[in-house]
Every structure is written in structure tokens, then in C-alpha cells.
Computed example of a mutant assay.
Amino acid sequence: MNSGLSLADHITLELRADIIGGRLLPGMALVENELVFAYNASRNTIREALHRLGQDGLTRYVRNKGVMVRKLGQDDVRDLFKVRRTLELQAISVSPPLRDDQSGRMLEALEATELAREREDWRAVGTHSLAFHQHIVGLLRSPLFDEFFTNVVAQLRLAFCAAPDESRFQAPWLARDRQIHDFLAEGDKRAAADAMSAYLDDSEHLLLRMLAPTPHH
């Protein structure tokens, strides 16, 4: 346990990890009493953790219902992809050739994605794919950006949950992630940036289509 972190910090990080792992889904209630019991923490500590998740854009307070995991809309997705383009494309453009350990971490995430796909565990596919993109942002070597992007990833995870058919949504990306890695490993930054740019455009359009309000007949 990191001694610099309070219990509220730990609970915030665990709940965020549950969102990234697809265990907490949009619209789920975070019930104070249950969390007090689950984490053996005081009510104040739980409130502080929930407040932080709200500040990070992961929960919202709904009158008469309490704190719920956020559902994201199209504007949220556009904003998240603005951030992704800025950070991921910048990371590719400024990174020196991939070191073995950086490449290794990316390959591990791709491997985990592959295994999850074979198990048809589409939620895990989404989580591991996002881990690959966290390693891309990691090329910036900025703990501040890493922390910020982890919140972005958690919000993206909530957006993915809107997919009526997560298998169809998650299926096409693995090969493209692998291609981005291979370009980076070869030191072809321009090809990697082009591939990433097209990837982000396609991913954003697909998510926006899924989140489009359905016309009422």
C-alpha cells in the first residue's frame, strides 16, 4: 500500500479500476452503506471517494437516487476523442524509437486483448485495448499525463458500454493496434501517426453512431 495515499484515495482508485475493468457500468448506483461495509471505511471516507469520482467525470449525483455511474453522451465522446488525438498523436510524434521494455508492455496488452477475444470476453477486450493506448501515452513519460489519461480511459470505458453489441464494436481494433505497434517498433513514426489518426476517427464515428438518439416512432 502506497503510504502517501489515504484510504479515500485507495477507494477512489479501486472504484475507478472497477469502471475500467467493466465491473461498474453506466447507471449503476454506488450505495453508500454497501461501500462502507465493503471497504470497512467510514461514511465520510466513502463520501470523499465518491466526490472525487464525480470530479473525475465518472459518477453523478441523481436526485432521490444518490450517486450513479455516469452515462456518457455524444458531446462527452467528442471531447474524449479531442483529448485522445492530442495526447496519443503527440506521444507518437515525440517518442524516440521504442525501447524493448516499452514494446514489451504494448505487446503484453495486445496479447491479453487476443486472449480475451478468443474467450469472447468483449468487455475485457475493451479494457486491454485501452491499456495499449495507455502505453502509447506513456511514451510521453509524464506521470501527470498518465494519471489524467487513466481518467479519460475510465470515461471511454463507460462510453463503450453503450455499444448494443460490444463484440461488433470491439472486434476490428486489435489488428489495427498491432499495426500501430509494428510501425512504432520499426521507427516509422509517420505511418504510426497516420494509422492512429485513422483509428481514432473510425472509433469516434462508430461510438457517436451508437450513442445517437434513436428516433421515436
Results as ranks from 00 to 15, higher is better:
residue 105 R to E: 13
residue 105 R to T: 12
residue 106 M to E: 01
residue 106 M to W: 00
residue 106 M to A: 03
residue 106 M to Q: 02
residue 107 L to K: 11
residue 108 E to S: 15
residue 109 A to T: 09
residue 110 L to W: 00
residue 110 L to E: 09
residue 110 L to F: 00
residue 111 E to L: 09
residue 112 A to T: 01
residue 113 T to F: 10
residue 114 E to V: 08
residue 114 E to P: 03
residue 114 E to H: 15
residue 115 L to F: 08
residue 116 A to R: 07
residue 117 R to K: 15
residue 117 R to M: 09
residue 119 R to T: 05
residue 119 R to G: 12
residue 122 W to S: 03
residue 122 W to R: 01
residue 123 R to C: 11
residue 125 V to T: 07
residue 125 V to H: 04
residue 125 V to A: 12
residue 125 V to L: 07
residue 126 G to T: 02
residue 126 G to M: 14
residue 126 G to R: 13
residue 128 H to N: 07
residue 131 A to P: 00
residue 131 A to V: 05
residue 132 F to L: 02
residue 133 H to V: 12
residue 134 Q to V: 15
residue 134 Q to T: 05
residue 135 H to E: 10
residue 136 I to E: 04
residue 137 V to Y: 02
residue 137 V to P: 05
residue 138 G to I: 14
residue 139 L to A: 00
residue 139 L to M: 08
residue 141 R to T: 02
residue 142 S to P: 04
residue 143 P to Q: 07
residue 143 P to R: 02
residue 143 P to C: 13
residue 143 P to T: 10
residue 145 F to T: 05
residue 146 D to E: 15
residue 146 D to V: 10
residue 147 E to W: 03
residue 147 E to C: 09
residue 147 E to V: 04
residue 150 T to M: 12
residue 151 N to E: 12
residue 152 V to R: 08
residue 153 V to M: 11
residue 153 V to T: 15
residue 155 Q to C: 06
residue 155 Q to W: 09
residue 156 L to Y: 09
residue 156 L to K: 05
residue 156 L to D: 07
residue 156 L to T: 08
residue 157 R to P: 00
residue 160 F to W: 06
residue 161 C to V: 12
residue 161 C to G: 14
residue 162 A to K: 15
residue 162 A to M: 09
residue 163 A to Q: 02
residue 163 A to G: 06
residue 163 A to H: 01
residue 163 A to N: 03
residue 164 P to F: 00
residue 166 E to T: 11
residue 166 E to K: 02
residue 167 S to R: 08
residue 168 R to A: 01
residue 171 A to M: 06
residue 171 A to E: 05
residue 171 A to N: 09
residue 175 A to I: 03
residue 175 A to C: 04
residue 175 A to N: 06
residue 175 A to D: 12
residue 175 A to T: 08
